[in-house]
Design a protein around this nucleic acid. Structure first.
Lengths: 200, 200
DNA sequence: GTCTATAATGGGATAGAC
DNA sequence: GTCTATCCCATTATAGAC
């Protein structure tokens, strides 16, 4: 085994953990499974992390940031608000279907955080970040298209995130892509109901 | 310990398991925790159930049936489609807030089923039943109000279930009742977009 | 710094006494 | 039929050899 800085090991263990979780689930990502995936020994784990819980916290934060970055990157601004919304939602969905395992982890980690004391704020931060990200995209879309939203943006953001999360999770169960996309397109139409030309 | 028929023990263990899971989560509902809750000994467990997995399967089926029964019971038919939809959604939400723990179990069990081989069909059946239940309520609402849906009912059912699941899960994290209810009311308006008077 | 060996714990399942 | 005692396994974490 090559010598490595502890920070590099940490990064490798983090990525190994994400791979194991995407493949087998959060519960199966034991310290042993993670170090095996990373090609390290069990001892290596505990000079990089205080505990398995600490690793899970880091994974949660990392995936949250990644998802937000992905969503920002996929956002498709247009002059026409309908195009913005429709293109962006399709792009988000495509990103999800390209990598469902990684999004599934996120839902599992939320459940984990809700059920383990000392982790409540982890789930809280996770969704605070998600909600803020969608809210800021809604603002951005409005700016680009010269419209304003007739409902409070935090409520719209919660609505959009709910539909996306809900559709994702049902798709994870039944893989019904056609109905999922049809429902997603309904969401686009519904959002447009709450847009009106900006007052001068 | 009193003598009991195995079937009664099974029923008690089932309810004990649901209580433990609602309180502490599915992962923490070990065989030991469940028998302690039920006031039985560990040995008792294994003449009622072949394995912990079998218990989890039974819990999943039981909670699925209960939820469907609850939703059917809360459904509020009216002559006016808007009243039907709005009243029903509010009633569903009230049911959720009255017992969030039991609904949280359902999400955890879905994740569990998705991650454990031999359980894929458990999650599949769960959502098939949910989707069918919402579809049949949509049909029922349409009949009562003399309208027809302009989108395929399975797509509408998926959409409604997604919003409800998504809002529930976000609420479990941040307990923001106001924004959740506001989003739920948006769903009602959106559904109405896809209703039109029935052709004679 | 690295890794083996081993604690210490908690879990599912079972054998066998009563 | 009931429950104790135990097996056996996997886990997290650590101690200590190299």
């Amino acid at each position: 085994m090559p010598r490595m800085a502890a920070s590099d090991r940490r990064a490798e263990l983090l990525e190994a953990a994400i791979r194991v979780m995407a493949r087998d689930g959060v519960a199966k990502a034991t310290t042993r499974a993670v170090v095996t995936e990373a090609g390290m020994t069990l001892g290596a784990f505990h000079y990089c992390f205080e505990s398995r819980a600490q690793l899970l916290e880091l994974v949660t934060e990392t995936l949250t940031e990644r998802y937000v970055a992905e969503v920002r990157g996929l956002f498709a601004p247009h002059k026409d608000i309908r195009d913005s919304v429709l293109d962006s939602l399709h792009a988000f969905w495509k990103g999800f279907e390209a990598n469902p395992g990684e999004h599934q982890i996120s839902y599992e980690l939320t459940q984990y955080a809700l059920r383990n004391s000392g982790f409540e704020d982890v789930a809280g931060k996770q969704y605070e970040i998600f909600l803020r990200a969608f809210a800021s995209l809604l603002e951005l879309a409005a700016d680009n298209a010269g419209i304003e939203w007739t409902e409070p943006v935090p409520v719209l953001a919660r609505y959009v995130l709910s539909v996306i999360d809900g559709l994702n999770m049902i798709w994870l169960v039944d893989r019904n892509t056609d109905d999922s996309r049809a429902a997603l397109e309904m969401l686009a139409d519904h959002l447009l109901l709450h847009a009106r030309p900006r007052a001068a």
